[in-house]
Computed example of a mutant assay.
Amino acid sequence: MTKITSTMLADMRTRRESGDTVADIAARYNVKPMTVYQRFNRALGGTPLPGPANDNNPHRVTRMTARNGGCSTTSGKMPVTLVRIPSVDGVAVERVAA
């Protein structure tokens, strides 16, 4: 596995701008073409990598939900982030005495 340094990435970008194909660049650095595409995308401010499902937001909660037609096994579930509802999520609601 080859670690791509910032110097290597700059050289890759220069080669790409001069007309080299992504496959040629990948072969030169002993990486897969998809790796080159991903590094170009990330270095140029492309789509950021997804964050955690809950992101430690106190107003949201993570629940597991079925993603394959309602299968009840754990392998068929995925995390989703929902708005926190105090009465459902077991958080006590503070009431102010009148």
Rank of each mutant, 00 (worst) to 15 (best):
N54H: 15
A66M: 10
G19T: 08
S75H: 10
P58T: 06
N41Y: 03
T21H: 06
Y29A: 02
G76T: 02
G51V: 06
R60E: 15
A43D: 00
D20V: 00
G69K: 13
L49Y: 02
L9V: 01
T35N: 07
K32S: 14
P33V: 02
S18N: 08
C71D: 14
T73N: 14
P48C: 03
G76M: 01
L49W: 07
V22Q: 09
R42D: 04
S75Y: 10
V61Y: 12
N41G: 05
R60Q: 15
R63E: 12
R63K: 07
G45C: 04
R42W: 01
P33K: 08
G70W: 13
A10R: 00
L9Q: 03
C71R: 12
L44T: 00
T47Y: 00
T21P: 09
Y37K: 11
V36C: 08
E17F: 09
S18K: 10
V61A: 14
R28T: 00
G19V: 05
P58Y: 14
L49A: 02
M34R: 13
N30R: 07
N56E: 15
N57I: 07
C71M: 08
Y29R: 04
R67L: 09
A66N: 12
D24R: 02
N41W: 02
N68P: 03
A10I: 00
G69C: 12
M12I: 00
P58L: 14
R39F: 04
D24F: 00
Y37R: 05
Q38I: 01
D11A: 01
I25N: 03
T73I: 05
L44K: 03
